[in-house]
Amino acid sequence: MELFNENSKLAQVILKDHTLLPVINRLGLKLGFGDSTIQQLCKKEGIDVTFFVEIINVFHNENYFSEKKLLDFSVTTVIDYLLKTHRNYVDYVIPEQERLIDLFLSNCTTGCKENELVRKFNKKFTEEFIKHIQLEEIEIFPYVINLNEVIGNPSKKAAFMDQYKNFTIKGFEKEHNNMDEKMFDLKNIIIKYLQPNYDQNIGNSLLSNLFIFEKDLKNHSRIEDKILVPKVKQLEKIVKKDE
């Protein structure tokens, strides 16, 4: 599959793969690209162009393995991107999914009591998802940022070791499985088991949304598991080697 580079015109990139739009927004660019290349746009907005290109390639091509290159990015750049993604989920993607599920269920004519379970299931998924995001933002990311600061300023090491005596990034990866499971279930329930008494067009929108969200989430987890976690392990090795 084709890969993009800094000389690709962003408008052409989007014409080839429109699912990159939310990714590009999170990276800091908005529509109205004209004929500008990625390099020109990133320079204008002060965005790390190499990181930009790597991230859109990760999303565009599932087989793209750039872990090596990505490990060169500063953790603050990666975390900044992850935080923006979280905001996008909380402010837009999740409310949109809730809106579509509400619309979908409000068109139900018979057997609605059962279908109501879908709403409840989605609510639970949303709650768990937000909890997961909070865990990352309140515990994991600050840990990583602090760890990174110790690398640049060894005098902070003692305070860091004190605060995070038994904390490591290990185990963080498994966190993602639950999210994926519920998403997978919701999709199958709607496709396979709901009674066919709903508005087809709304059902289709809801499912398209779910598929896009699922793909996005998978790539988001990929960035966390394959870039952030290995990077943090690297830093942990350096900081904790004398302990």
């Binding site: 059962e114 379970l117 329930i189």
Partner: peptide, 17 residues
């Protein structure tokens, strides 16, 4: 067989079925 993995998903399946 069902395509449903989570416990709460299975509860929903049992009700729908």
């Amino acid at each position: 067989k069902t395509g449903i993995k989570s416990a709460s998903g299975l509860t929903m399946y049992a009700v729908l079925k």
